[in-house]
Design a protein around this nucleic acid. Structure first.
Lengths: 116, 116
DNA sequence: AATTTATACATAGCTTTGCGATGTATTGTT
DNA sequence: AACAATACATCGCAAAGCTATGTATAAATT
């Protein structure tokens, strides 16, 4: 079971939401938290995560801050002001979309005003 | 507001589910029903729908049947036996995934056994 | 009657986005 | 010493929906 395609379009929102919740996080920490919180079902890969973080930063929604743990560097990310606003919009849109899909695939569609 | 990316990975499932519900449908009818049932928020484009239908047919999950309405042709699609099975799996997977995402972006994540 | 809109199919090429593979380096475990 | 985990990064691939375009019939509007 590989929901790799389902994740498309949701990764940015997930990252923003986690930063909203936690204040600041670094990349590796995000992958571990998502893995943990999803019961090992959503495994964000480095090849997905880092480009996504860089894009969010380039868009001005998050900022990074390098912190050295011994000789190893960590890049902590946090939301900018525009990022906080974008997070709300993004989360709301995703929830609305998922609600719509849920209705679509679970309810019996009313044929009275359908096409055809 | 463009959930074009969010739709990725869900279109096939939506089509299968609608066919399960309605028995048989033709392409244009699917676009109209989805548009209708989603309150005009999900607008499936021809460039998305027809390739998706062709792929489902190539995979043996649906079969088509041409019907002439006057001089105009309609291609009605319906589920095959494997398609019916796939529909259940596909719908269940999508629902589970959305539930997971919902938890991720709404609940407060417990930091007690998080990463870091 | 002519024009526009809706119905109904289809495909080529673009863009986005997550992934696999690969690379570098430090730290912890066996 | 060897291996796994931590922690960053990028390149090229593949999947999938979209735009634009094309063809054709039917209905609605002017």
């Amino acid at each position: 079971m590989n929901h790799t395609e389902l994740l498309k379009g949701t990764l940015g929102t997930i990252i923003l939401r986690l930063l909203e919740e936690k204040g600041r996080m670094y990349g590796y920490e995000i992958t571990q938290l998502v893995k943990e919180a999803s019961g090992e079902t959503i495994l964000i890969k480095e090849g997905s995560l880092y480009p996504a973080l860089h894009k969010l930063e380039a868009d001005g929604l998050i900022v990074s801050e390098e912190v050295f743990i011994g000789k190893r560097v960590r890049k902590y990310y946090s939301l900018t002001k525009p990022g906080k606003k974008a997070t709300r919009a993004s989360v709301d849109e995703l929830l609305a979309f998922m609600q719509t899909i849920h209705n679509l695939i679970t309810s019996e569609l009313n044929p009275s005003h359908g096409a055809a």
